[in-house]
Simulated assay, not measured.
Amino acid sequence: MGLIKLKNIRTFSFHGCLEEEGKIGSDYSVELRAKADFLKAAATDDLAMAVDYVHLHKIVVEEMDIRSKLLEHVCQRILNRVLHEIPVIVHVTVAVSKINPPIGGDVELVTVEMEEFRA
């Protein structure tokens, strides 16, 4: 079993419950960790046998471009797509962080992290 990590995928997105958040947007950071069997990729040196991190990045960016009120909703969409589109992945964890959230205090970021296992 192997683990692939994409750290600090940065996006400018429009998530949030406040109407203003949908208009002005905010900076986000996404972390993604996926577990899969890497033995065939390691043995063959063939991208077709590997977990393509370009594909993972594309999923994250596309889902971050779809406005949601809740970070939980964004996380779940990313989890669903990863497991649906990349069958070799057996476990995936996603953390979506809103940088400088509008909560009336000095908070660097707020993060929602979720995980899914292939059934």
Rank of each mutant, 00 (worst) to 15 (best):
V92P: 08
E72M: 14
V92L: 09
N80R: 11
G104A: 05
K69H: 04
V90N: 14
D65H: 02
I66H: 03
L83T: 12
L70C: 00
I103D: 02
N80C: 06
I86Q: 09
E85T: 09
P101E: 10
P87K: 15
I66P: 01
P102T: 10
P102W: 08
H91N: 11
R67C: 03
L71R: 05
H84P: 00
P102I: 12
N80L: 10
R81T: 07
P102A: 14
V92M: 11
E62C: 06
L70V: 00
I103P: 02
C75S: 04
K98T: 08
G104E: 05
S97K: 15
P101T: 12
H91G: 03
V82N: 02
A95C: 13
T93G: 13
P102Y: 09
K69C: 00
I103A: 04
R67D: 02
N100I: 02
H91S: 10
I103M: 11
I103T: 06
G104F: 05
E85D: 15
V88A: 14
N80F: 05
I89E: 07
R81F: 03
R81S: 08
E72N: 14
P102Q: 14
V82P: 01
I78W: 04
K98I: 04
E62Q: 14
L71S: 04
E63A: 01
L79S: 02
K98W: 03
M64R: 07
N100A: 11
S68H: 10
S68M: 04
I86V: 15
D65V: 01
E62M: 09
V96A: 02
D65E: 13
Q76M: 06
V94Q: 04
V82W: 01
K98Q: 09
I66L: 12
N80H: 11
N100G: 01
V90A: 08
E62N: 14
N80D: 15
I78N: 06
V90T: 15
D65Y: 01
D65A: 15
I78D: 03
I99P: 04
I99A: 06
E72P: 12
P87L: 12
